[in-house]
């Protein structure tokens, strides 16, 4: 980790409301190298909004401000819509949570993945088809030729998630945001999908932001973890040290999860302190 791929300083995302504005992300600062960075937090903690802000995908009327937000030397704050189009899909992409809602239901798998090749890589249709098949094979889909012709509703959850990963990786971006990529999957399938992501990080030297609410997965999969609460990064630690985290919120989250190793008669509940947001 010499040069950070991504530098974020003082990121704020605000959604103006009638009376008060909702501050979805508050003064978030972090860097990402060629590593697996986890972001954990509960629903509404701003973890997905952080991911979207990095790709310029915060929906209106959301306002994104930051002191610095740069990716491989490029200032993301001054990107025009045209610049974003050149970056997104080509240099950076995002895997969404649920393949059921994130794939185009009226296009075949092959056409959807191929589109990226045609659009970003300037390939011919034939090259695009070949590359799509190779990519489907890379995410360990058993029968790429068959899957190529299927529509999203004909795929199982695990297959759909692999198709999404294939689509996001076909242009070989060097920065990927995975937003709860395995939450909709069974545990055994979840590990297969994680293994694919893991190989891509170590083989291609990709930077990965892994957003999840599952502490077990994050602590075993990521290198570093950011813990978000109410839009604020309350703690940053090495993933394997998550059990020994210092912040009371992180500690409470760890204690609230039932565990296969320790029998607890009662689970700890989280007592929230308004001080945490100051």
């Amino acid at each position: 980790m010499t040069d950070p791929l991504l530098t974020v300083e003082d990121l704020n995302v605000t959604f103006p409301g009638r009376e008060t504005a909702v501050r979805a992300v508050r003064n978030a600062s972090f860097t990402l190298g060629r590593e697996r960075l986890g972001i954990v937090g509960e629903s509404g903690s701003g973890k997905s909004t952080t991911g979207r802000a990095l790709l310029g995908l915060v929906p209106r009327p959301g306002i994104v401000t930051a002191k610095t937000m740069s990716y491989a030397g490029q200032n993301l704050l001054q990107c025009t819509e045209r610049d974003w189009q050149r970056l997104r899909g080509r240099r950076m992409s995002m895997v969404m949570q649920d393949p059921k809602y994130s794939l185009n239901p009226v296009k075949t798998v092959g056409a959807q993945i191929g589109e990226t090749c045609l659009l970003h890589l300037g390939m011919t249709r034939k090259q695009a088809a070949a590359r799509t098949l190779a990519m489907l094979e890379a995410v360990r889909i058993r029968d790429p030729e068959l899957t190529y012709q299927l529509y999203p509703h004909q795929l199982s959850g695990g297959m759909g998630q692999r198709v999404m990963i294939a689509m996001m990786l076909v242009a070989e971006p060097d920065f990927l945001i995975a937003d709860e990529p395995t939450s909709a999957l069974d545990v055994t399938v979840q590990n297969e999908v994680l293994r694919i992501l893991d190989d891509l990080v170590s083989e291609r030297g990709m930077g990965l932001i892994f957003i999840s609410h599952n502490l077990t997965v994050v602590s075993s999969f990521c290198d570093r973890v950011l813990i978000m609460y109410g839009g604020k990064i309350v703690e940053e630690c090495a993933a394997r040290d998550l059990q020994n985290a210092r912040h009371p919120y992180t500690r409470a989250l760890v204690a609230a999860a039932p565990s296969l190793d320790i029998q607890r008669t009662e689970l700890a509940t989280v007592t929230r302190d308004p001080e945490w947001l100051k």
Partner: peptide, 22 residues
């Protein structure tokens, strides 16, 4: 056994039985 291993979190190699956090 497979289900238990999978619930204990991610392991780098499929066969490797490393100790992970709960």
């Amino acid at each position: 056994r497979e289900l238990i291993a999978a619930s204990r979190g991610f392991t780098r190699a499929p066969s490797q039985n490393q100790v992970v956090l709960s």
